[in-house]
Simulated assay, not measured.
Amino acid sequence: MPQTVRYLTHPAGSDQAAEGRPVLVAEPGRPRMCAALATRLGALSGTRRVVSSDETKAIETASPLARALGVTLEIRPKMHENDRSATGFLPPSEFETVADQFFAEPTKSVRGWETAEDAQRRIVTEVEACLAGPQEGDVLVVGHGGVGTLLFCALSGSGIDRCFDQGPGGGGCWFAFDAQDRMPRRGWQPMEALMIDA
């Protein structure tokens, strides 16, 4: 039976709110939501691997899930969010404008950000490396909205476009794809949907 791979973005925290994203699961709701999911694994019950970016918010989301599943958390540093260090914090409206440009002009470095094409190539390469070789059970990858959207675009055969972003909430969303054909089954869903048995 084909394994399911789920890509889960960490729930939004105070920094996403500062960047202008509405917060679906706010601080201190983020740890509470992750803890609730860890006690009611639902669709994740068949997961045998949990892989995370090395960024704090991803690890904070992935760690309680890995513990609840009884698996060792795997850290892959190259699964980090698109590199926006050139600008640092931007006011909400400015962030949204630059993010729109990032997706609209994927070959260009907008204000020093990593290009969308480079970020997409990196996340696809890391996910493929993660899935190389035989898998037993489902895989959960915990990461970030920007590169998650770029991964979704690549897997679905769509061009890079922000219309495929996870939408309002700024985090705590997921999509699933088959480990064999790599095709997404549907678009982004809220984290809460994982509590329901598949």
Rank of each mutant, 00 (worst) to 15 (best):
E126I: 02
A119F: 06
P106H: 14
P64Y: 03
T149W: 10
R186W: 09
G148I: 09
D118F: 06
V25T: 13
S93N: 13
S14F: 05
P106R: 13
V147S: 06
A62Y: 01
I160G: 07
G170R: 01
H144T: 03
T4R: 03
A43M: 08
S52W: 08
M191E: 05
R30S: 12
G143C: 06
S93Y: 12
M183D: 05
S158Y: 12
P184A: 09
D138W: 05
D197K: 08
D181C: 09
H10G: 00
E136S: 11
V25L: 15
P22G: 07
P64K: 06
Q189R: 10
E126Q: 07
H80Q: 02
T61G: 01
P22H: 11
L140F: 07
D165T: 12
G133L: 03
L44Y: 10
E55V: 11
G46E: 14
S156F: 11
V98K: 14
G167W: 08
M33D: 14
L151R: 07
Q101A: 15
E74P: 01
R48V: 11
Q3E: 10
A36L: 15
N82G: 08
R185G: 09
P22S: 14
Q135W: 03
V5G: 00
V142P: 00
R121E: 12
R76A: 08
D178H: 06
S63W: 05
V141R: 07
E96A: 15
P31D: 14
E19C: 09
C153N: 15
V98C: 12
A18Y: 11
I59K: 08
G143V: 07
L8A: 00
E192W: 06
A17N: 02
P11N: 00
L151A: 07
D100M: 13
E136A: 11
V124H: 04
R122A: 09
E105F: 13
V110A: 08
R48K: 14
A132H: 05
A198D: 10
G187Y: 07
P28Q: 13
T9N: 00
T149H: 10
A43L: 07
S52Y: 08
E192K: 06
